[in-house]
Each structure stands twice: as C-alpha cells, then as structure tokens.
C-alpha cells in the first residue's frame, strides 16, 4: 500500500450519499438477479455460492448512509441542481473553497450557523453578507425528501446519476514519468465503467480556477 496523495480532492456530503446509494442499489439489483437466476435454474443446478459481501464494507456503508439520511442533515434537502445553484450564487462572495464546501454541507439558514464557518468574518465582510448568504441557502433548499434515494426497485433513476457532479478539485494524478520505472506492458484506465472522471463534468458547480 502506498499513499500517493492523501487529499486529492474534497467531496461534499451529497456526493458521498449519491455514491453510496448507487453502490447499494447496484448490489441489491445484483443480488436479485442472482436469486432469479438460481430459481430459474431449478433446484438441481447448484452454482458455486456467490462470495458474501464483506461485513466491514457493509457496515460502514449502512452507517454512513444512515447518518447522511438523518432528518437533521442538510443532504435530505439537496439535489444536484440545488447544489449547483447554490455554488453559483456563492461565487459572488469572496469565500474560500473550504468555506463554500462547508456551506453546501451544512446549509446554514440562520446567522448563528453561518458565522463560525467563515473565518475572520469581521475583517473580511460586512455583517449584511450573512443575511444574503442565508437567503442564497434558503433559495437552494428543496423540500425534504426522506425517501431519497429512489427505491432500488426502480432502476430508471439510478442509471441517470452522473456520479461526480461536483468534485471540488481536479484530482492530482502523478506525473507520467512516475511509472517509467515500472514494468507496465499494458495498462487500462477504467474510467468508463466507474463513473465519469472529474474533467468530464468540469463545468460542474464549483468554479475551478480558484486556489
């Protein structure tokens, strides 16, 4: 194991929620397909049992989803479009990337919640900005949808996810010559099957020319 970059990009809570929901739906669909295949094949047919899903992975997935779907969390009042709109609104203010990410994660609708997020507030902004940003957040909220994501039985919604809608940072891949010494005869880059890479959706929510 080797860590090339411990912090290649930051993810918003909503992105993690989308990713995990998608993986969960995928697995449930696979399980169902396997069950159906087994039933269709009849009792005589006895294929090698599918490898059980690792419990560690299952646990963290379940608990993270449970947390992100908790009614108090802002993720229940967001969707892809609302985040994009909020990010666009926030461009007007001279906020750092981390501050924007926190505003999107927490969706502060009152001044008390917003105030600690912005560093050195008094020196940088006028107090009226708080209200303006609160209003932006309020505008970007959608009605809380506890049933999010769509039930796994309906596959229509799941296919349409663009998994990396708002990756905040271009991933920093190592230099090409990094691999020069390695014996890579053929390499494949598996980007198609596992979500479009960040650059494919580069016109996403957060402006990227920021430092």
């Amino acid at each position: 194991m080797e860590v090339l970059n411990a912090r290649a990009a930051m993810l918003s809570n909503y992105e993690v929620l989308t990713l995990l929901s998608e993986l969960e739906a995928e697995r449930i669909a696979n399980d169902k397909a396997a069950m159906a295949a087994k039933e269709a094949a009849g009792p005589e047919h006895n294929p090698s049992p599918a490898a059980p899903v690792d419990t560690n992975w299952r646990t963290v997935e379940y608990e993270t989803l449970k947390w992100l779907k908790a009614p108090k969390m802002a993720t229940t009042q967001q969707d892809k479009n609302s985040i994009a709109r909020l990010a666009k609104d926030l461009r007007r203010y001279d906020l750092t990337k981390a501050e924007k990410l926190q505003i999107i994660n927490l969706m502060p609708v009152d001044q008390a919640a917003l105030y600690p997020i912005i560093e050195d507030f008094e020196d940088r902004f006028d107090i009226s900005i708080l209200e303006e940003i609160n209003r932006c957040v309020q505008n970007a909220m959608i009605a809380p949808d506890i049933n999010y994501p769509p039930a796994p039985s309906s596959n229509a919604g799941i296919d349409s996810y663009a998994p990396v809608a708002t990756v905040f940072d271009e991933p920093q891949y190592p230099e090409d010559d990094y691999y020069a010494g390695e014996h890579y005869e053929e390499e494949f880059v598996d980007e198609v099957a596992y979500g479009a890479p960040a650059e494919a959706v580069g016109d996403g929510a957060i402006d990227e020319d920021e430092n």
Partner: peptide, 9 residues
C-alpha cells in the same frame, strides 16, 4: 468531511 485519497496497492 470526506476526501478522495489517491492510493496505490
């Protein structure tokens, strides 16, 4: 809260 880490294994 969440990050992406680039890893090799």
């Amino acid at each position: 809260m969440y990050n992406l880490a680039l890893m090799k294994d």
